[in-house]
Nucleic acid binder design. Structure first.
Lengths: 225, 225
DNA sequence: GTTCGGCCACTTGTATACTAGTCCACAATG
DNA sequence: CATTGTGGACTAGTATACAAGTGGCCGAAC
């Protein structure tokens, strides 16, 4: 877990390392974390670890109980729905605020991204596909000119990534994702704000639909009720 | 500045105290803050102060420059627009997700709030009006059932509150606000999602429109370019 | 008078020490 | 055997100490 991000502070590195570990379920839901233990693992002191845990608490990826411990949260339907709500709100509003006439310079990276997705889907490179997926949503957010859209959407995505990582993607899934991406982009390029909103809402809801399957496959990651 | 919130930790109290001081411009934009100085003022150590400053940095209310100092940010058009974007995204999506048929139980507190606003507007009680304004938006967010809507909207509001606090409200302004509130609620109550969205977007944009006036009245609060 | 250079006070970032509270195991007691 | 109390080993919250770096002041040299 130890490697640290180059640019930022130690605290940023600790945050990145912990977030990755949680999202990839290396640190499984319910797992008890101690600040001392994490500090030892990452090789820093408690201070930057605490800083990282405070940020992760904001994202509801950990829960810190005073005088008791810090725990990786279970996947809660409510938290996932919240994250989805934030993401949908921001990204839909972002494509709504996209300039109605897009010059070729703005559209070019998006088209390139879609082509790259096509190649990744053919080859079956799941990591590349996921990366391009993120990049596309980032590009769509940036159309609004409000960088905060992607920044907050990214943060909310922690909950959703945990789910996405667990769903076993097959070729059909990727093909469908790609088709939906193309539908959104087509509407945006045509200046059809209502259509873009509709397609994007539909697309974002896909990740939510896999939740019951994941719950069946990994009941131990969910809060027993 | 010193009083501390009862429920939470020392860090929470420091955050609340600092945020209030910044939003009310007791700590003016550009003001240099030192963690030691703040710790002395609030009467705690640097650790909880740092925790508070990290949160305020997230909200772009302070900027921390390593090895140099922490500064109250100037009012930046870009930051205000970002906050507005977040708020509009979340609240519009919230009223869109409100159940199409509202039972009287859900609508009652909203109607009560509007009546109270009417009274506050007549008396000219600006503080009460601002408080009821917040409460109404809170109630509207809660219609969606997603508590995160209000939580994030509230956070983004730091930037907007700084502006709102500086605008000198007159009776006409409050009357207009109240009329807009009523228009939003009427559309929501009628189950007219499109209408509610339109009215809410219009209403939220009002606070942005006062920005040039405030800039003329308080140029020292804005970043000279 | 101007400019360059070094020192110093002060900043945040990080590490460590101390405080207060919770859980659990285990022993003593009914 | 069951129950209760008690001590110890943990926890996070807070305070303090140390490290690394910045800017400004002040004096000296030109």
């Amino acid at each position: 877990m130890g490697e640290r991000a180059l640019g930022g502070s130690v605290g940023d590195g600790a945050y990145a390392a912990l977030r990755t570990a949680i999202v990839t379920a290396q640190l499984v839901p319910g797992r008890r974390l101690s600040e001392n233990e994490l500090a030892g693992l990452i090789g820093v002191s408690r201070t930057p670890v605490r800083e990282a845990l405070l940020r992760l608490r904001d994202e509801r990826l950990v829960e810190v109980v005073p005088q008791l411990g810090t725990f990786v949260t279970f996947i809660e339907e409510d938290a996932v729905a919240d994250a989805h709500f934030v993401r949908e709100s921001l990204e839909v509003n972002a494509v709504r605020h996209a300039p109605s006439i897009l010059d070729a310079g703005a559209l070019r990276p998006i088209e390139d991204n879609l082509d790259a997705q096509e190649r990744a889907a053919e080859v079956g490179d799941d990591d590349a596909f996921a990366r391009l997926d993120d990049e596309l949503h980032h590009l769509l957010c940036d159309l609004s000119g409000r960088s905060v859209a992607w920044r907050l959407s990214e943060r909310a995505r922690g909950q959703l990534d945990r789910v996405r990582r667990l769903s076993l993607p097959d070729a059909g899934y990727r093909r469908q994702m790609l088709a939906e991406h193309r539908a959104v982009v087509a509407a945006v390029a045509a200046g059809d704000a209502d259509g873009a909103e509709r397609e994007l809402r539909h697309h974002l809801r896909m990740v939510l639909s896999s939740l019951p399957d994941i719950r069946r496959a990994h009941p131990e990651y969910f809060q027993e009720i």
